[in-house]
């Protein structure tokens, strides 16, 4: 699977309150959450983001709350994947569980807002279109790949339920 999209660059320690503020957690409707995605980090984000765009962060992306509303909001906003230097563990887990592709790249310094990235999810290779520069990402652990192949954790569980 491959994806090409425009970069929206954010900094280190992007917390879940920035991704989706708690004032909007009185709903879990994906469309509604998407309208407020990244609102406190970049108030215009929801209007300008286009299907297939890519969010890039620094270290510790998604720190804070366990709210699955965070990856739901990002996915429903049309973002094709999130690339960061590291992810907070609950966000990492949630993203895989609900099928939002995320990739860890040692340095995201060269990725800037407005740039274009091509991502190959099978090889984990990223190409910065403007310069042609190639970047490798940390391989996804086999168990997580299995989850993705099953279509997320719930599909994985359903398969197991049907088998038993």
């Amino acid at each position: 699977m491959q994806s090409t999209g425009t970069i929206h660059k954010f900094g280190d320690d992007i917390d879940t309150d920035l991704i989706i503020p708690a004032r909007y957690l009185n709903t879990s409707d994906p469309g509604e959450l998407a309208r407020h995605c990244m609102e406190d980090a970049d108030p215009g984000f929801a209007e300008k983001v286009k299907a297939g765009d890519i969010i890039v962060g620094g270290k510790n992306f998604g720190c804070g709350s366990s709210r699955e509303h965070a990856p739901i909001a990002i996915k429903a906003a049309g973002v094709s994947c999130v690339i960061a230097e590291s992810f907070a563990r609950i966000f990492y887990r949630n993203a895989f569980n609900m099928g939002l592709p995320i990739l860890e790249c040692e340095s995201t310094e060269k990725f800037n807002t407005g740039g274009t990235l091509s991502v190959d999810f099978d090889t984990g290779e990223i190409i910065l279109q403007e310069t042609g520069e190639r970047f490798t990402t940390r391989p996804i652990p086999p168990f997580m790949q299995e989850l993705v192949q099953s279509g997320g954790l719930m599909k994985h569980i359903q398969k197991k339920l049907k088998a038993s």
Binding site: S66, P71, R93, N97, L153, M154
Partner: peptide, 25 residues
């Protein structure tokens, strides 16, 4: 399904926060 689930480590439990999908499972 709350990040502060780790509180119960204070009495010697392994406890950790997860998302809603993990809770459902």
């Amino acid at each position: 399904a709350d990040s502060h689930t780790c509180t119960y480590g204070g009495i010697g439990a392994f406890s950790t926060g997860v998302g809603s999908t993990d809770l459902a499972a």
